[in-house]
Amino acid sequence: MVRNFELTSNLLKDVLVIKTEGYINNAGGEKILQEFENHFENGVTKVLIDIENSRVVNSIGISFLIEIIEKLNSKGGKLFFQNLDPSIEKTFTIMGLFQFAEKISTVDEIK
């Protein structure tokens, strides 16, 4: 079921910026992964996910994000997060996402 989840993406230089809106669950996570893979195949290795408009995430949604991290790691790339809701940030911390992904304030922080 794909409801209440939308995403937009654009390439800023070599960074893929994905902006999500809505519940990051199975459907939402799958959409993010799909969008990532479209660009990953073309050599994109820096991805920024802006989740300002996503206040709820479940562990299935997180598993897709981990998959993205693993794929980026295999190519020496990195995942970044922007505009994290405090409760989501805590969840990501517990799930260990920040061992391989970085929290940033603006896209300019990505070198």
Partner: peptide, 12 residues
């Protein structure tokens, strides 16, 4: 409701 949905991996 939203927290219960998230915690249990429910769709809605």
């Amino acid at each position: 409701l939203s927290r219960a949905i998230s915690l249990t991996n429910s769709s809605f």
